[in-house]
Amino acid sequence: MSRKIFVNVCSQDLRRSIDFYAALGFTLVEEFTNEQAACLVLTDSIYVMAVTEGFFGETVTNGISTTGTQVVLALELDSREEVDEVADRALAAGGEKAKDPMDEGFMYGRSVLDPDGHHWELMWMSTDAT
């Protein structure tokens, strides 16, 4: 059975989040977007829901963390070059470098924080390594 994942991220500026994820190649889904949340699709099974802080707060029961990282979001890409391309687009779109690139030969990755501080690991791993 094929399943979809909807990653919900708290956004302090919804327009900024839409622009950031669009720069990474996500497509806005207008019919699931309003002034409180934006649905952005990367593949037929991966979606990001950028949700305003007020609306996000209504969906959680234990409050919104304002310090530290609660989750690391990892996205596998098709090549080392694509990792660099997406990371560079993320930085140009308002993201920040999270840490230095990681190169293990068979695996390569770069880390970025989106404009709201959500940690994304962009990675490629050789099919020979799996």
Rank of each mutant, 00 (worst) to 15 (best):
T43R: 07
G105R: 03
T59S: 12
L113C: 08
D128S: 14
T127D: 14
V7H: 02
Y108V: 10
E104T: 06
Q70K: 08
L73D: 03
S45Q: 10
W120N: 03
F6L: 13
G25Y: 04
F32A: 14
W124G: 04
D103V: 08
L40K: 07
A38F: 06
L73A: 06
G54D: 15
K99C: 11
S79N: 07
R16G: 00
G109I: 06
N62S: 12
M102G: 02
L42V: 01
G63H: 04
E58G: 10
R110K: 13
M49A: 06
V29Q: 14
E31H: 15
R89Q: 12
D88H: 04
G105V: 02
T52K: 05
G117H: 04
H119S: 03
I5T: 15
G109S: 15
A22Q: 13
G57S: 04
G105H: 03
A74G: 15
M1P: 08
L24T: 02
I46H: 08
S11H: 05
I64F: 04
S2P: 14
G57E: 05
K97R: 14
V71M: 15
I46D: 11
E58R: 11
M123E: 06
A87D: 01
D88V: 01
V60Q: 03
F106Q: 09
T59W: 03
D100R: 03
F55T: 03
V86K: 01
E35M: 05
A38Q: 12
G54H: 10
L75N: 00
